[in-house]
Amino acid sequence: MMGLAERRTSYRDPTRVERDFRRACAEFPTGVTVLTTTVDGEDHGSTVNAFSSLTVDPPQVLACLSNTSRTRTAIEQANVFAVNLLAGGQADIAKLFASKEDDKFARIRYRRAGLDVPLIEGAVATFECRLVESVESYSHAILIGEVLDFSIRSGREPLTFFRGRIGRGIAGPDDSREN
């Protein structure tokens, strides 16, 4: 039996499906990452919350980007990318890389390592990856990367996305901890 707050959405009612599906997915907290790469000396990056580990042996991760994303195209050209798991105090970086602003990298601190892709300073963890596969699914691509190197900065709280809000820990709609 459904509780009072529970709502079922029928696929027969297309006007509600998208809205209700987004609301249902928003009940799952995710980390906030920025995918970065470099092509022909130009840096590219996009904010992504659709990120997960995939396998341990070999170490692989997956992330999803829109088919219209310039970062997706750049990653497919470069065949390498980094996943930067943002820290709690880096909401401004998440918002910057979610925007269409030019020269985003001029506004942040980053370094380069083995794959020569931007690694955002202060991130909770970074993964340097070789693109293994890009799978198109409707409006997005699932990028699978083999992790060639990674770093962890212990003791940092991650930036999260929950119920449509960015914050530290689990920030709900009534939570004022947004950074």
Rank of each mutant, 00 (worst) to 15 (best):
S134R: 03
E136V: 14
E128K: 07
P59L: 15
C64H: 15
V48H: 01
T73A: 11
A5H: 12
R107M: 09
V83F: 05
V132N: 03
A78E: 10
L86A: 07
F21A: 07
A50W: 15
R19T: 13
L4M: 08
F81K: 03
V135I: 12
L4C: 10
Q60S: 02
D43I: 02
L35V: 15
G41C: 09
L65A: 05
F161W: 07
N84D: 00
E133S: 08
Y11K: 12
T37V: 14
G31I: 12
P58C: 07
E101C: 00
S134V: 01
R112K: 11
G31V: 09
G122R: 06
R111F: 06
G114S: 08
D13T: 05
G31P: 10
A98P: 00
G169N: 02
V48P: 03
F28N: 08
T55F: 01
A74C: 00
P58T: 11
F81C: 12
A98Y: 13
H140E: 14
D174E: 05
S69E: 07
S151H: 06
F51K: 08
L143K: 06
V80P: 03
E121R: 04
A50C: 12
L35H: 11
F28K: 00
T55R: 00
D102Q: 15
V17S: 06
L96M: 11
D57K: 05
R112Q: 00
T15F: 02
T36V: 09
F21P: 01
S46V: 06
T126V: 02
V39S: 08
G45L: 13
E27Q: 15
T33W: 03
P29S: 13
S10A: 09
A98W: 10
A87I: 09
A82M: 10
R112I: 04
N84G: 01
A91N: 07
A141W: 12
D43F: 15
E76H: 11
N79I: 06
F162L: 02
L115T: 08
S69Y: 10
L86T: 09
T30L: 04
F97G: 01
V48I: 09
V135G: 08
S10G: 05
E136D: 07
V80N: 02
K100G: 03
P14D: 04
A82E: 11
G169I: 05
I166S: 06
Q60G: 10
I120L: 06
T33L: 12
F127S: 04
G172E: 02
T47L: 08
D43H: 13
D92V: 07
D175I: 02
V83C: 14
F51T: 11
S154V: 13
